[in-house]
């Protein structure tokens, strides 16, 4: 995987160009300005913390919705100077919207982040954050990622045959990463949802568990995970007794990851995703297709296809998810290991 930065910093710019950095004192933040009074309405209670998948991974307060709102406020008042680091932080968000939904003051953090991103980008502060990056050396310009992107953040320039990422529009769902047949699309690691991190999480869970049914659940963050959100049990085995691994969007779970989980010793794999019409990225449709094809493969290999399960959960249906995991674990216990 390449570490080279995507050459295209953002919208409305010629490909390959980079805007000169604007003197921080000169930046107007014309889009962010309209949120000034909303930023005052945020009471900074921090109730958004428990819902944020980024914070769960890093536990630094700058990686919370409140933290980024504070940065946005600081940028407006001049208390925070724009910098590549600030831009990087502002471009880190999976747009799951849990923070906006949970905010009783009805502040919409993600809308504010989007405008802050656009302002920063216009001033030459292009963070990469959780947005997709395209390795042009590998990219075949097949366009699969472009048609898969529901946020319309990807464009294929037919002249140069390059795929450009609009970092303001990109919501970091990771669907393009899975869709790319040659591994040209990628996302920065660090928040537990890249292919490698998910695979490592599966491995660590399966190694830590003894005896009981080894069930791996890939859960999109819209459904919210049950169990401990921000604390740990002292004994390692109890950290994640149900094997729930948050993948942010079910569209990230590729067939290889599912088969890898079985290969590593899982008795069953469940993908918990949004109801069919409710996924912003159509990741659930992709997950459904993958489940069908991997299920057939399991059959051909002589394993029971019911070891792979797809379930739909609407936002906040935590209890329903818990029950489904429990009943799936019960079924797998009767099937035993592969």
């Amino acid at each position: 995987m390449t570490t080279e930065k995507a050459r295209v910093p953002g919208r409305a710019m010629p490909l390959g160009a980079r805007k000169p950095l604007v003197d921080p004192r000169e930046i107007e933040f014309s889009r962010l300005k309209k949120w000034a009074s909303e930023l005052n309405l945020c009471i900074r209670c921090g109730y958004c913390y428990e819902h944020c998948p980024l914070y769960r991974a890093s536990s630094w307060e700058i990686d919370t919705p409140r933290g980024r709102l504070l940065l946005a406020y600081g940028l407006l008042t001049g208390e925070v100077e724009p910098s590549p680091y600030v831009a990087e932080k502002m471009f880190e968000c999976f747009y799951c919207g849990n923070c906006s939904r949970s905010c009783s003051a009805k502040v919409s953090p993600t809308d504010i982040f989007t405008d802050a991103r656009a302002d920063l980008l216009d001033s030459g502060y292009a963070g990469e954050g959780t947005t997709a990056r395209n390795d042009e050396k590998l990219c075949m310009a097949c366009g699969r990622c472009v048609s898969a992107c529901k946020a319309q953040a990807l464009t294929l320039d037919m002249g140069s045959m390059r795929v450009a990422v609009d970092r303001v529009k990109c919501k970091g769902c990771g669907v393009c990463v899975v869709e790319c047949p040659v591994g040209a699309m990628s996302q920065r690691a660090g928040f537990g949802v890249t292919r490698e991190e998910l695979s490592a999480a599966v491995q660590s869970y399966l190694r830590g568990i003894n005896g009981s049914p080894k069930v791996v659940v890939f859960c999109c963050s819209w459904s919210m995970t049950p169990g401990l959100q921000l604390s740990r049990m002292e004994s390692a085995g109890a950290v994640n007794a149900s094997g729930v691994i948050v993948s942010v969007c079910s569209g990230r779970v590729d067939p290889g990851l599912i088969l890898d989980a079985f290969h590593q010793g899982a008795w069953g794999v469940m993908i918990a995703c949004c109801p069919l019409d409710e996924c912003e990225h159509d990741g659930n449709y992709r997950a459904r297709e993958r489940c069908v094809s991997v299920g057939r493969l399991l059959d051909v290999l002589g394993f029971q296809a019911e070891r792979l399960r797809l379930e739909h959960f609407a936002t906040g249906e935590v209890q329903k998810l818990k029950n489904a995991v429990k009943s799936f674990a019960g079924e797998m216990a009767s099937l035993g290991p592969i």
Partner: peptide
Amino acid sequence: RDNAADLYVYGSDA
């Protein structure tokens, strides 16, 4: 952490 952005975030509560 001692960069200006993190320090600003840790300077607030409710």
